[in-house]
Amino acid sequence: MGVVIRRAGESDRADLVRLLDEAFRDDPVSSWVFPDAEYRRRRHGALMDGFLDLALSEGYVDITEDGSAVALWWSVPAGADEDAEEGPAQLREAVDPGNARIEEIARLTGEAHPTERPHQYLHMIGVSPERQGEGLGSALIGAVLERCDREGLHAYLEASSSRSRALYSRLGFRFIGNAINLPDGPQLWPMWREPEPSGTDGGDTGRFA
């Protein structure tokens, strides 16, 4: 039986922030944004809340029925400017005004983001640490990719590790050529997916409640 997925809302905010905080606090990118571990422990949740706020207001958030995995998506129209000038600064001001790296990573990812064609943008996907490796992330992604295939929609994301890049490759995403190099930090790999009329090969795909 597939993983049951539902659309999350404002009432889920506290649980979602907690889940994202746990899933990403020790991630290489989060460790770059907040190099000091103790400061990261105190401020990382605010960054996750900022990302969630954007997804709830401008995109959509899918969560597994048991609350163990979450995905943040945007529907990006062709020609979107990604708020290239104001967005990164606004995010920094809202989350941690003294942390220039918040603005820098938002600016770098925005500059790399393709805008020629409309697409579904997977901004983040997090799985509770004790549930990782069970296929929940693939199910969350697969549910949206099935819709992309049915409706002829493209999809985009940035892989933050070689492991996630390999997973996304199996789901039909392809590296588009120029890695995002965080200064003195990890790389991100922009990846694009064309719709596949035959459907995805994502294994245990989800179903909506």
Rank of each mutant, 00 (worst) to 15 (best):
V3A: 10
L153A: 01
R165Q: 11
R107S: 08
G133K: 01
H119G: 01
L16C: 02
M1K: 15
P118E: 00
A209N: 14
V76T: 12
E111N: 12
R170N: 03
P114T: 03
R117T: 07
G202N: 04
R101Q: 07
E196Q: 13
A94N: 14
Q120R: 09
E65R: 02
E85Y: 12
Y121T: 04
E151Y: 00
G203T: 00
R41D: 12
R18V: 15
E146T: 08
D83E: 09
R131S: 06
W74Q: 10
D66H: 15
A84V: 06
L136E: 09
A8C: 03
S57M: 15
E151D: 06
Q90A: 15
N99T: 05
P183A: 08
P35F: 06
S57N: 13
A84M: 08
L145V: 05
R207D: 13
R193T: 03
A80W: 14
E111Y: 15
G2T: 15
R163M: 11
A37K: 14
R163Q: 13
E116S: 15
L47M: 14
R7S: 11
S198K: 12
P28K: 02
A8D: 01
A23Q: 11
S164L: 14
G87N: 10
G59A: 00
G177I: 12
L145A: 05
H113A: 08
R107M: 07
W32P: 05
R193Y: 03
Q132A: 04
A80Q: 10
Q90E: 11
A209Y: 11
R101W: 03
A106W: 08
E38V: 08
E82W: 14
I141S: 11
G177A: 14
E65Y: 01
Y121N: 07
I180Q: 10
E111F: 11
L136F: 10
H154L: 03
P197E: 00
E85W: 11
P186K: 08
V17A: 01
T205E: 10
P190A: 06
G67T: 08
S128I: 04
R170H: 05
R25S: 03
A179Q: 07
E85T: 10
S164V: 12
L20M: 08
P28V: 02
R42Y: 14
D36Q: 12
S160L: 07
R163F: 14
V3P: 08
L47C: 11
L19I: 05
I125R: 00
L171M: 15
R174K: 09
